[in-house]
Amino acid sequence: MSVSKENKPILLTVILLAAAFVVFFANRLLPQNSIFPSRSGDLTIPLWLFFAIDVGFIVALVLGVRTKKQRVVWFSIITNSIFFVLLSALMFLLAIANGISEP
């Protein structure tokens, strides 16, 4: 199964969006084996994972802009920009929550 060069940014955006949902809901989906400590309130692991996903949205944006199909370019600019801004806002709120919860 080969993905063409023009469709890689779209596929990367979908994978990153799914990864963001998995990281966000990981504590609810797998409470026993969670990577997030629920009692201590330490949010550094989700912050770093969301940061990596945010960088991935920037990479997908650059890959999308470099393609030759106009639909892929516009899709990449619109969706990756929206997801980047929303995830950055979520990371900011998580950083504030992490700062408040630590002694």
Rank of each mutant, 00 (worst) to 15 (best):
G56M: 00
S4L: 05
I96F: 08
S88P: 05
I35M: 12
L43H: 08
F57I: 03
A95W: 06
S2I: 10
I15E: 13
D42E: 15
F51I: 08
T67V: 15
F92V: 10
L11W: 03
S4P: 03
I100R: 10
L29P: 01
I78R: 01
S81N: 09
P31F: 01
N33G: 12
A95L: 15
A95G: 14
I82C: 03
L94V: 08
A89H: 08
F24T: 15
A26P: 04
A18Y: 03
V65F: 14
R39P: 09
A97M: 14
F83C: 14
V23H: 04
F36A: 10
L87E: 07
S81Q: 06
R66L: 14
K69E: 07
F57M: 04
L17V: 08
G56T: 07
T67M: 05
K69Q: 12
D42R: 10
L43A: 10
S101P: 00
A19W: 06
S76L: 10
I45C: 03
L93K: 09
L94W: 09
M91L: 00
S38I: 12
I53F: 05
V22N: 00
L12E: 12
A26F: 01
F75A: 14
L17Q: 05
I78W: 07
A19I: 02
I45V: 15
L17C: 09
T79G: 05
L86V: 13
L29D: 04
S4T: 14
M91G: 13
V14K: 10
F75T: 11
P103Q: 12
F24I: 13
S40I: 13
L90Q: 09
N33C: 07
I78A: 14
I78K: 05
L17F: 15
S38N: 08
S88D: 02
R66G: 05
V3C: 02
M91N: 12
G41D: 01
G99M: 11
F84Q: 15
F25L: 15
N80D: 08
V62R: 03
L43K: 13
K5P: 01
A97D: 02
Q32F: 13
F50Q: 02
N33L: 11
T44D: 09
P31N: 03
P9V: 09
P9I: 01
V65G: 00
P46W: 06
G99C: 02
S81P: 00
F83W: 06
F25H: 03
F84N: 11
I77K: 02
A89D: 02
V85Q: 04
R71D: 10
L17H: 06
R66A: 14
W74H: 08
I77V: 15
L87M: 05
A20N: 02
V23P: 06
L17W: 10
L63E: 12
F36E: 13
